[in-house]
Write a protein that binds this DNA or RNA. Structure first.
Length: 675
DNA sequence: TGACGAGGTGATTCG
DNA sequence: CACCTCGTCA
């Protein structure tokens, strides 16, 4: 028996024991949101619900797994069997079962972003849109437009007008391309990430039997991170709860950071309107950070243009203020941060209690070099995933072809391994293979004699491996062995990459079905390449990937205009507001110490396109706009050499002289050009 | 016509 | 690091 009243504060307690009808929990950063959900799972199970009758939808698979583990710890093992996962993985489960209704067979494949881009590229080539005279959007851009339209319900025209006005004349062609893309996926039994959600919604909307069956099964529905759901997910949520209407949505409007994926925190505001008599509970006490850190984070969010009143407070006192330090440049910053980390470890702080956060994955490049040089082990989250590196995509393509012999995109990729066989020939051969069939191709008319032997050999291997019924590692091992025959020719740095091939073998070890393995690595791509990652290491992470996590000491680096906020966000107020929330999320990860660093010098070209011409490289507006900064944070200059005296902003008295100097420089430019 | 290496460039963020 | 473009060669 768990004493819920003792374990939880009054608001958390209320959120847990209220199990009838709809409930919205507005949970500020660090307010024990996860704890509340964990206890709620336990409470529901303890009070007689079958674990399978509870649906727990979370933002990442890891998050739901963790919650179930913790619930199992405080109650018992039954909590492990709660239904749950991400919206995407839930959609996958449902569609494997009922996808037939929509014309998919149950063994449909899920394509990742790279596959989707390849298909777009292919169609673009077919439509002869890749001519360089024509300034047609790149494949990634096309996919962004399509995906945004899917996830927001906005028309292509609207999106192009707002975000890509230079392509306004291409709207018609993009529409054409998009419909060909859909047809391609249908014809090949493929779904992309958006299709999973769209198709699930379609099922729930159009099929009364399926909707009723499912929503009857789930007696209680819980959705975490509701501020980061998009309109499709919100509708799915409502329909899945439509029979019993017992539902808890948890979220924080101040932490909405996924609008690029169509997330809309207005879902939170809509929720109580959709479910009548919805109870609203606010969790405002922060159990994570010290009061000085909260003073700082409250200031960040205070400047938000659209906000919903909520003032976080903490009972954790501390005399340590957040630190703001300025570094000369990225290299200087890398050195300073590394030194500080070393100092902390000397004081006995374990490395895994420290994290370095940044806006974009590549912002940590220089720091990573410095850390390696000083033998500080780290794990990096965010950015390129393991499965997105090109040698892993190679290998996975082979596995995909073994699973589905007419996977066109993967065939193209594999065929290009053969020396002398490029894009065009690969497309021709792959077309033949997937239309005529490889058996027929091999046995009869084969136009490209040159490659006959090699393709025949490859074909035999594929047939062989797709009949392999034993262990999945047998398949992956043989696939790796075959691939290694090309590997060294394909990559100069094959040594560095070669470990990853072993990792794929190890990853596949846990699986018995190739289909499940391929689905899993697409829906939940492993982040880190070295499998021996352990929790002892320092954490480097993008802010997005740090969501929901916490560390004793948090560094946020490169907090400059152009980096944080990212240069692209300067074009719209809304994007800028999201960047602010991002900075807020980053800062609220810190428990005891928050250290923010900005650069004095850098590449102002990064964002000058969006600002007035003479914009200088400057600390983030999110720092400079805080008026009481001096009182709530300590400032530190880089101790590094005399370089640190560099001014990031030209003193007024030098402005006139700077003009003279610049003019002179420009006047002599031609001499040197013609030199 | 197609393959392919060299060289430049510019980087969101995630399922 | 991945993508794009360009020049060269078969």
């Amino acid at each position: 028996m768990i004493d819920y009243k003792k374990e939880l504060n009054p608001n958390q307690y209320e959120a847990v024991i209220n199990t009838q009808g709809a409930q919205l929990v507005i949970a500020g950063a660090g307010s024990g949101k996860t704890r509340t959900l964990v206890y709620k799972v336990a409470y529901l199970v303890e009070n007689g619900l079958m674990p399978s009758e509870i649906l727990l939808l979370t933002f990442s698979r890891k998050a739901s797994q963790e919650m179930m583990d913790r619930a199992a710890e405080i109650l018992d093992k039954r909590c492990m069997n709660v239904s749950g996962g991400t919206f995407h993985s839930f959609a996958n489960q449902v569609l494997r079962k009922y996808g037939r209704v929509l014309g998919y067979s149950s063994n449909f494949s899920i394509i990742d972003r790279a596959d989707a881009e390849e298909i777009i590229n292919l169609i673009r080539g077919e439509l002869k849109l890749n001519k360089k005279e024509r300034n047609f959007p790149k494949k990634g851009t096309v996919l962004n437009i399509i995906s945004k339209s899917n996830n927001t319900g906005k028309s292509f025209l609207e999106i192009i007008e707002n975000e890509y006005p230079q392509f306004i004349d291409e709207e018609e062609v993009i529409t054409k391309l998009s419909s060909m893309y859909s047809k391609y996926k249908q014809a090949n039994n493929l779904m992309d990430y958006d299709d999973l959600l769209i198709n699930l919604l379609k099922l729930l909307k159009n099929e009364d039997v399926i909707r009723t069956t499912l929503s009857d099964q789930y007696k209680y529905v819980m959705v975490d991170e509701y501020q980061d759901t998009n309109i499709i997910q919100a509708e799915i949520t409502c329909l899945i709860a439509s029979v019993n209407q017992n539902i808890t949505a948890v979220g924080d409007d101040a932490q909405s950071i996924y609008s690029f994926r169509g997330a809309n925190f207005k879902n939170i505001m809509m929720f109580p309107k959709i479910f009548k008599e919805c109870k609203i509970v606010k969790l405002e006490q922060n159990y994570r950070s010290t009061q000085p850190i909260l003073n700082f984070t409250n200031e960040i969010i205070k400047n938000a243009k659209e906000k919903y009143c909520k003032q976080l407070y903490s009972e954790i006192e501390s005399s340590t203020l957040p630190t703001i330090l300025s570094a000369f440049d990225v290299y200087d910053q890398a050195k300073i941060i590394t030194k500080k980390i070393e100092k902390f470890t000397e004081q006995g702080v374990p490395l895994n209690k420290i994290a370095v956060l940044f806006r974009s994955a590549y912002h940590s490049n220089e720091l990573e070099v410095e850390l390696k040089g000083n033998h500080i082990p780290y794990d990096k989250y965010g950015g390129l995933k393991f499965t997105e590196s090109s040698h892993i995509k190679d290998l996975v393509s082979l596995l995909k072809v073994i699973h589905n012999h007419s996977d066109f995109i993967s065939w193209v990729r594999i065929l290009k391994w053969f020396p002398g066989l490029g894009e065009k020939t690969a497309i021709k051969l792959a077309t033949d293979i997937t239309t005529i069939g490889i058996n027929e191709l091999i046995s009869s008319k084969f136009s490209k004699k040159k490659f006959y032997e090699r393709i025949n050999e490859l074909h035999k291997l594929i047939i062989n491996l797709s009949e392999e019924k034993d262990k999945l590692t047998n398949i992956t091992s043989k696939a790796v062995k075959y691939y290694k025959g090309f590997f060294k020719e394909l990559y100069d740095d094959y040594r560095r990459r070669s470990n990853d091939l072993e990792t794929i073998k190890e990853l596949s070890d846990k699986y018995s079905s190739l289909e499940v393995f391929l689905t899993d690595i697409t829906l939940d791509p492993p982040q880190i390449s070295s499998k021996q990652t352990n929790s002892e290491n320092l954490v480097l992470s993008t802010i997005h990937s740090a969501k929901g996590l916490e560390w004793d000491i948090v560094f946020i680096i490169s907090v400059n205009n152009g980096y944080m906020p990212d240069n692209r966000s300067f074009s719209s107020q809304e994007d800028l507001e999201e960047e602010r929330r991002l900075f807020y999320v980053a800062s609220t990860r810190a428990k005891n110490e928050l250290i923010i660093s900005y650069l004095q010098t850098g590449n102002s070209r990064r964002y000058s396109a969006y600002l007035e011409e003479d914009a200088t490289f400057a600390p983030s507006m999110f720092l400079t706009e805080i008026e009481e900064l001096e009182e709530i944070a300590n400032k530190e200059e880089s101790e590094n050499s005399s370089e640190s005296k560099y001014f990031h902003k030209l003193p007024d008295k030098l402005a006139e002289k700077a003009k003279v100097s610049k003019k002179f420089m420009e006047s002599i430019e031609s001499y040197f050009q013609n030199y």
